[in-house]
Nucleic acid binder design. Structure first.
Lengths: 163, 163
DNA sequence: TCAACCTTGTAAGGCTTCCTGACCAGGCGA
DNA sequence: TCGCCTGGTCAGGAAGCCTTACAAGGTTGA
């Protein structure tokens, strides 16, 4: 079909645009994180900080939500334990399992990270318009809830998986 | 500050939301691509299909736009040449350089890919609202032009880099 | 109650993608 | 023409993730 000129020769696919925005935003986050006292936390570690909270979570659950294998998450957790951010405690309900939870330092880092993400988002709100960024977030949250419910624990977690 | 309850305990950082959308969209694209006759094209190859066009582009230029090293792009191009999608022709203006350009098969694949991306985007427009997706694209294009101009060749390419 | 089966987590090894460092050949200014 | 810059390649390595295999603990049903 369309043998039109070069009109859309430089059209960028939507996933590409999303990646550019994500990378840039994440780079701003990293730049600040790296010169904080938590500079040894790498991007990979994110899956733990993102999902673990309170009582802790099983390796299997983190893996499922992060869409990674148990082995991969296992390595990441090893690393975080070595660095003093996380710990494995035996699951009282199942002697095979261990609950991955954050140490105090880990919780401090998690809180710091969230604050940093909020800060960067606010900066973009000032740069591109608060309403547009708010609309962006709203749309993306809807998309996430629809397309990757496992990664959006709000409701999945409240229901004990019993019908 | 905010020692509020668990209100935003499951708040997802903006880069994370962008990644979820990107991954999902890209997965839909891949699913269709893989069962086409171009199923052997891998995500990594994208940097070539995305930037190469017409006369061809130097390795160095692709690398700069894709934010990769020359070595990495070199490997990717090797792979595409082996598979018959790309070729290296000597640059008439500089005997050190080679122009990376697409073969006929490569151009067909590129066109097919673009069509697929457009199709997936249209599907999302139907799913989430045409206006919202259009606004999303508009905002992201503005962000890309602002944050990663090298990856948005529209104007960069028209100017012969002479001031 | 116990055999068969499922689940949780670990160990070992491999692949892909990207990087750094070292280098050669060609271009270019003094 | 010498010294330096640039385009591209070669070799080796790190990070992040995967597959296969397995041990230990739970669960189910005859």
């Amino acid at each position: 079909m369309s043998r039109a000129p070069d009109k859309n020769a430089f059209w960028i696919p939507l996933p590409g645009l999303l990646d550019i925005a994500s990378d840039e935003l994440f780079a701003e986050f990293r730049a600040e994180l790296e010169q904080s006292e938590f500079g040894d936390i790498r991007p990979t570690h994110g899956c733990v900080f993102r999902f673990v909270q309170g009582q802790g979570l099983r390796l299997t659950d983190i893996a499922e939500r992060a869409k990674l294998t148990k082995q991969s998450v296992g390595e990441i957790v090893d690393d975080l334990v070595e660095r003093g951010y996380a710990q494995r405690i035996p699951d009282p309900d199942d002697r095979r399992a261990k609950l991955i939870c954050l140490t105090e330092r880990g919780e401090t880092a998690q809180a710091h990270g969230r604050k940093l993400f909020a800060k960067v988002e606010k900066r973009w709100a000032e740069r591109y318009g608060a309403e547009r960024i708010a609309a962006l977030r709203e749309l993306l949250e809807e998309i996430a809830a629809h397309e990757a419910p496992a990664a959006v624990p709000e409701r999945a977690q409240r229901e004990p998986a019993k019908v």
